[in-house]
Structures are given as C-alpha cells and as structure tokens.
Amino acid sequence: MLISVIISAYNRKEFLKNAIRSVYTQLLDKGLYEVVIVKNFEDKDIDDYIAKLGYKNIIYDTPSYGEQVSVGIEESKGEILAFLEDDDEFKPNKLSKIYKVFSTQKEVSYFHDTREYIYNDKKLWSGHR
C-alpha cells in the first residue's frame, strides 16, 4: 500500500520548503509514500531541493486549486491520497497514523481537519491525540 502526498502551491514560495520538509521528516518508512508537488512557478532553490529529495515536481500554471490537485492525482501512484497546501505542515507521525488506519480497516475515510476516523458510516475515533 502506497500513500501519495500531493502538495500544491500557487504564487507562494516562502513556506513551501517547510511543507516539503514536514513530509520528508515523517516517521513512516519513506518507501511507503511518494510526494508529488504541483506549483505554478519555477524557483531554482526549491526545485533543487525537490530534486534532491527525489520528489515529483510538476509546473502547472492555473489559479484553480482543484486543477492543481487533479494534476497531482493523475501523476500519483498511491492507493491513499493525502493533501498538503504550501503554507501548512504535517506533524511527524501524520503518515504513520494514516498508514496504520488504512492497514487495519477497510472502507475507511480519514479527515485531517476534523481528526475523525469513519468506518461504515460509524465514527471510530474523534479528537486530538
């Protein structure tokens, strides 16, 4: 099972490396996830950093968040999709938690903002850990 992390960025460079770094420093084995970055700009420093980490770097010029995400999904190989915007960061255990839930449950959805695990329309867990 592979997790695809899709990072989107539109016209904002100042936080993007921090977002990327927060994915790179995940506690989950790096072989269990890939990273696809979709942005509308080129930046030597950021592009070199992405290349050094071996992540996919896609330049796609659109102001539409939905189009950026769609391009990222098309380029991803994972069965599980995780989304991260350029001005946000994952906590170090984020992908480990997602992997554990999807490894032990079937037909489950994980909602980042609400921190809920739902299985067969029943809430398994809600709250902060």
Rank of each mutant, 00 (worst) to 15 (best):
I59F: 00
E67Q: 15
Y119S: 15
W125H: 08
W125C: 10
W125S: 13
E116L: 04
N11Y: 03
K123W: 02
K122V: 15
S103R: 11
F111E: 15
R21D: 13
I7T: 11
V108K: 04
G54P: 02
I37T: 01
E107H: 11
Y117F: 13
L124E: 15
N18F: 02
Y55M: 10
S126I: 09
S126H: 05
K100D: 13
Y33N: 04
E89F: 00
E67R: 14
N57G: 01
I7A: 09
D45T: 09
G72M: 04
F90R: 03
V71R: 14
N57K: 00
Q26T: 05
I37W: 00
K52V: 04
K97E: 14
K44S: 14
Y33W: 07
G31M: 06
Q68H: 11
S4D: 07
T104W: 05
A82E: 13
W125Q: 12
E14A: 09
L28Y: 01
V101K: 06
S96R: 07
G127S: 10
F41L: 05
F90E: 10
L2T: 12
E107D: 15
D88I: 00
Y55D: 11
D113T: 04
V5F: 01
I37A: 02
L28M: 08
Y55W: 13
K91F: 10
N57E: 03
N57W: 01
S8T: 15
V5M: 02
V101D: 09
T62M: 06
G66Y: 10
R21P: 00
E74C: 12
R115P: 01
F41Y: 13
E75H: 12
L81N: 10
V35G: 01
L28F: 02
V101W: 12
F90W: 06
L28G: 08
I37Y: 00
E107A: 06
V35A: 08
V35W: 01
F83P: 05
I20P: 02
V71K: 15
K39Q: 06
H128F: 11
I98V: 15
Y65M: 15
S70I: 04
K122M: 14
E107T: 04
K123P: 09
N18Q: 07
D86N: 14
H112R: 13
E85T: 14
Y49V: 04
T114E: 12
A82M: 09
Y55Q: 07
T62Q: 04
H112N: 14
Y117L: 15
D29R: 00
K44D: 13
D48A: 10
S109Q: 08
K94V: 11
E14L: 04
S8C: 15
I59K: 10
Q26C: 03
G54K: 00
W125R: 09
L84H: 03
F83A: 06
I6D: 09
S76D: 11
E14Q: 09
S4G: 08
K123Q: 13
I3R: 08
T25W: 03
K91P: 02
E42D: 11
K106I: 11
I37C: 01
R129N: 13
V38E: 13
A9R: 08
R115E: 14
L124I: 15
E75P: 02
